[in-house]
C-alpha cells in the first residue's frame, strides 16, 4: 500500500477545488495541506461535507517568532478512510486576527478560546470571548515565546534557596548525542 492512492485522491480533490492550496502526503494516512488564512473555512467545510472528514480532532497554534507569524493547525480525521488531514495557515503576529470556525464544528469554540487566551489571537465573533482558563491574568499571553516564564515566576512567587547545585544537563546530553542547543533555547540556562 505504498502508493497512498486514497491520500493522493483526497489531496487532488482539495487542490483542484481551491486556489492557493498546496500540500503533501507526509506518510501513510497523513496529509498536510498549507493554505491562506482566508480559505481556511472553505477548506474545512469542503473537507467536512464532501470528503467526509467529519471529525474535528484538534486545533492548535505555533509561535514562529523568527518569521513574525503564528501558525494555526487544524487536524481533521476521517472515520471512513482512517486518514488524518492536517490543515495549516499562517497569520501575522503583530495583529493576529483569525476567522472563527465554530459554526462548522461547535467544539472548535473551546480550542479557540484557549488559543485566544494563551496566544492572544482574536477570533472574529467568538462566543464567550472572555476569561477562560487563566484567572485574573494581567500579563502577556503566556504561551508566546517572548514571554519569559522564569522571570515571571521569580517576580510573583517565592523561591526557596537550595537549587544552586542543580546542573544544566542539556549541554551534556547534546554533547553526547552530537546535537546543538537551538538558539531560542539558550536563554533558559541555570546560570
Amino acid at each position: 500500500m505504498s502508493e497512498h492512492i486514497k491520500e493522493k485522491e483526497t489531496l487532488e480533490a482539495i487542490t483542484t477545488a481551491f486556489e492557493k492550496v498546496n500540500g503533501v502526503v507526509q506518510r501513510d494516512k497523513r496529509i498536510i495541506v498549507r493554505t491562506e488564512a482566508e480559505t481556511i473555512p472553505g477548506v474545512l467545510l469542503y473537507a467536512k461535507e464532501r470528503l467526509k472528514y467529519n471529525h474535528f480532532s484538534h486545533m492548535s497554534c505555533v509561535d514562529w517568532i523568527e518569521d513574525k507569524q503564528f501558525e494555526l493547525v487544524y487536524i481533521l480525521w476521517s472515520p471512513e478512510d482512517k486518514i488524518q488531514l492536517i490543515i495549516k495557515c499562517r497569520i501575522n503576529r503583530e495583529n493576529p486576527i483569525m476567522q472563527n470556525i465554530d459554526n462548522i464544528w461547535r467544539q472548535a469554540n473551546t480550542y479557540e478560546r484557549e488559543i485566544r487566551e494563551m496566544y492572544g489571537i482574536e477570533f472574529e465573533g467568538l462566543v464567550g470571548a472572555k476569561e477562560f482558563i487563566l484567572e485574573d491574568w494581567e500579563d502577556m499571553p503566556p504561551m508566546r515565546r517572548d514571554f519569559d516564564t522564569k522571570e515571571y515566576s521569580n517576580d510573583h512567587f517565592f523561591d526557596r534557596p537550595g537549587r544552586e547545585d542543580a546542573k544544566d544537563v542539556r549541554t551534556e546530553i547534546t554533547e553526547r548525542s552530537g546535537e546543538e542547543i537551538p538558539d531560542f533555547a539558550k536563554k533558559y540556562t541555570r546560570d
Binding site: L134, D139, P142, T149, Y152, S153, F157, F158, R160, R163
Partner: peptide, 12 residues
C-alpha cells in the same frame, strides 16, 4: 519551579 502558573513554596 519556573512555571508561570504554579506557586513555588506553599508555606508562604
Amino acid at each position: 519551579w519556573d512555571s508561570y502558573n504554579t506557586i513555588n513554596s506553599l508555606d508562604k
